[in-house]
Simulated assay, not measured.
Amino acid sequence: MKINTDRAPTYGPAIADLKKEGKLPEETLHRQVKYLDNVVEADHGKLKQLIKPVRGFKTLTTAYATIKGFEVMHALRKGQAAIFQYGGGIMGEVRLIERQFNVYTT
């Protein structure tokens, strides 16, 4: 069994403790991968590109709502919400958004 983590110093001792307690097999291999968080950082880059034209936010509430909307649309594009869609293709995404946010098109 292999466990891949980034280079945070807390993972090593935590995994060693789990092995001592018998919650992880002794043969478990801990691999520290320097660039493991690049996938997360790549998503942040896209988010920054979307936020820049907005020129900041006046309140925390509007910031939260706007960023949440960006994240939802990004998840839809990546296909992460496919099981929640009401039909296939773009119309399935439209119906999902309509029902979740009570916004209906005419």
Rank of each mutant, 00 (worst) to 15 (best):
M1Q: 04
K2E: 09
N4R: 12
N4Y: 15
T5I: 03
T5Q: 07
T5A: 05
T5R: 02
R7S: 08
A8W: 10
P9Y: 06
G12L: 13
G12Y: 10
A14W: 02
I15Q: 04
L18M: 07
K19W: 02
G22V: 13
G22Y: 11
K23P: 03
L24Q: 02
P25F: 06
E27T: 04
E27S: 03
E27N: 11
T28P: 04
L29S: 14
H30P: 00
R31W: 06
Q32F: 02
Q32L: 10
V33C: 14
K34I: 07
D37W: 03
V39M: 08
E41L: 08
A42R: 11
A42K: 09
D43I: 12
G45C: 09
K46L: 15
L47C: 00
K48D: 06
K48N: 07
Q49E: 09
Q49H: 08
Q49G: 06
L50K: 05
L50M: 08
I51P: 00
I51D: 02
I51A: 03
I51F: 03
R55N: 09
G56K: 08
G56T: 05
G56L: 09
F57Y: 03
F57V: 01
T59A: 03
T59V: 00
T59N: 00
L60K: 09
L60Q: 11
T61K: 08
T61H: 06
T61S: 13
T62D: 12
A63H: 02
A63F: 07
A63Q: 11
Y64M: 10
Y64T: 12
T66K: 01
T66Q: 02
T66E: 03
I67V: 10
I67E: 00
I67Q: 00
I67A: 00
I67Y: 01
K68L: 06
K68Q: 04
G69A: 09
V72H: 01
V72Y: 02
M73T: 12
M73Y: 10
H74E: 14
A75Y: 05
A75G: 07
A75M: 09
A75F: 06
L76C: 05
L76K: 01
K78G: 07
K78P: 02
G79L: 09
G79C: 10
Q80M: 14
Q80P: 01
Q80H: 15
A82P: 00
I83K: 15
Y86N: 11
Y86R: 14
G88N: 11
G88A: 10
I90A: 13
I90N: 11
I90T: 14
I90Q: 12
I90S: 12
M91Y: 08
E93S: 11
E93K: 09
V94M: 12
R95I: 10
L96D: 05
E98F: 09
E98D: 08
R99Y: 10
N102F: 14
V103A: 10
Y104G: 06
Y104S: 05
Y104L: 06
T105C: 13
T105I: 15
T106Y: 15
T106A: 15
T106C: 13
